[in-house]
Design a protein around this nucleic acid. Structure first.
Lengths: 242, 242
DNA sequence: TAGTGGTCTAGACCACAAA
DNA sequence: TTGTGGTCTAGACCACTAA
């Protein structure tokens, strides 16, 4: 059993958090398993109950653990989930879920805006857009296809850059653009054969489909994004208020 | 200044949370304002520092407050509506979309909690639940199948009532339950044949699948809901912030 | 230097689950 | 009855900010 180091710069609760989190992620405790009781952690790691509960609060908030009064604390059965509320980059999202993110650029070209996309981006039809299609991977397995449409006028020369595999968030910063908000619509659709092939699934499999218009800080629409996620590998998560 | 009631069923931290939250939402403290220091809250409300910090943790998690060591705790600028999606009843949802809502109760019975559902409702496996399956219609056409699981202990005798077609929200009010929050997960799945038949679509069609745990005002899980929406007739919408 | 939030201790009593 | 998590107290020392 790992020991805590009282002289470390890292607070005790943080050290214990890392230990328990690793035990869960690595599978030492399986979903549904009881984790050691608070009293047991107090004894094993020589910390107070406050500190132990601070650690468990973190794990509960993260969705890794749930508690039942009188019974104990258990490892949750949860998959890949994304927040519905904040704009989260793919890379950040994957890191948070302890998945190894990967990206393959399938195509990148200039195209004229179709009437439908022009309306969402509030530009005239035919306006020049940058279309980038990327395959996203989680732990090396296909997860989603992203079709990003940027207003070229706002990102001049972006196709010449080497950053396409990196986050567009970073690229945008180089152009002085900060994302302020986004509107998105979520649907379930069937995979057409081309998408099925790219995602290594059967045709007509269920996909989670997201359309998102992202706005720069001056409320100017700058990107129209379409994402097709494999239904078997991805889910969205949201907290609602009454 | 409001007082806390030590004899209340509501814990002290929850009472203080409601007070501070109301002060912020009602504008008593404006965005950017300092809220009273922890030491001040301790004195004003006669509670320990642990309790005060528990309250502030809740407000910080909710995005209403941020803290700076050595300076104080401040009201966030981007708090209120942002990020907080409201719980919307089926009826309200349909009206907003200009559809005529309809409901047919397919079954209503008492069942023991399966381990999976018990975990989400934080009850012991086997605890008695009310399972109500309803077909939802929009303009007379099948839209979704809802499987609601209520903790029977909190809704004794609800099966004997005539309100099953009406909103469960209303029924809950009769039991003195106010919904405070919910957590939901959204996926895309394929329709198994039974669901396809009920929804008048082909088997394996794409469905938008939502799982929701709803919490009563004391943070007690009270309902576990599964909804299968026809992918061709329903979509979700969300505003995101940067 | 005075005041703030960050971390931590060692207790206590309670409600609830399970045997 | 025993063990669990839920709530709460009264302290303590620390790191940081601002005057």
């Amino acid at each position: 059993m790992a020991r805590l180091n009282p002289k470390s710069k890292l607070p005790l609760y943080h050290q214990l958090y890392e230990i328990l989190r690793a035990d869960i992620v690595d599978g030492k405790y399986q979903p549904g398993d009881l984790i050691p009781a608070e009293s047991e952690l107090i004894g094993s790691y020589r910390v107070s109950r406050t500190t132990v509960r601070q650690v468990l609060d973190l794990l509960v908030r993260e969705g890794l653990v749930y508690r039942q009064r009188g019974r104990g604390s258990f490892v949750s059965h949860r998959g890949l989930e994304e927040g519905l509320v904040r704009i989260v980059s793919f890379t950040e999202d994957m890191r948070r879920r302890s998945f190894d993110p990967g990206t393959r650029v399938l195509s990148a070209e200039l195209i004229p805006a179709t009437p439908g996309i022009a309306e969402k981006l509030e530009v005239r039809p035919g306006e020049e857009l940058v279309h980038i299609r990327r395959l996203r991977l989680a732990d090396g397995e296909p997860l989603s296809i992203e079709d990003s449409h940027l207003v070229h006028r706002l990102f001049p020369g972006i196709l010449g850059r080497a950053t396409l595999t990196a986050s567009l968030q970073d690229a945008a910063r180089d152009y002085g653009i900060r994302w302020s908000s986004a509107k998105q619509t979520i649907r379930a659709v069937e995979a057409v054969s081309e998408l099925a092939r790219l995602l290594s699934i059967r045709a007509r499999s269920a996909l989670l489909y997201i359309e998102r218009v992202s706005y720069a800080d001056n409320q100017v629409p700058a990107e129209f994004l379409r994402i097709h996620y494999r239904g078997d590998r991805y889910s969205l998560y949201a907290d609602l208020r009454g």
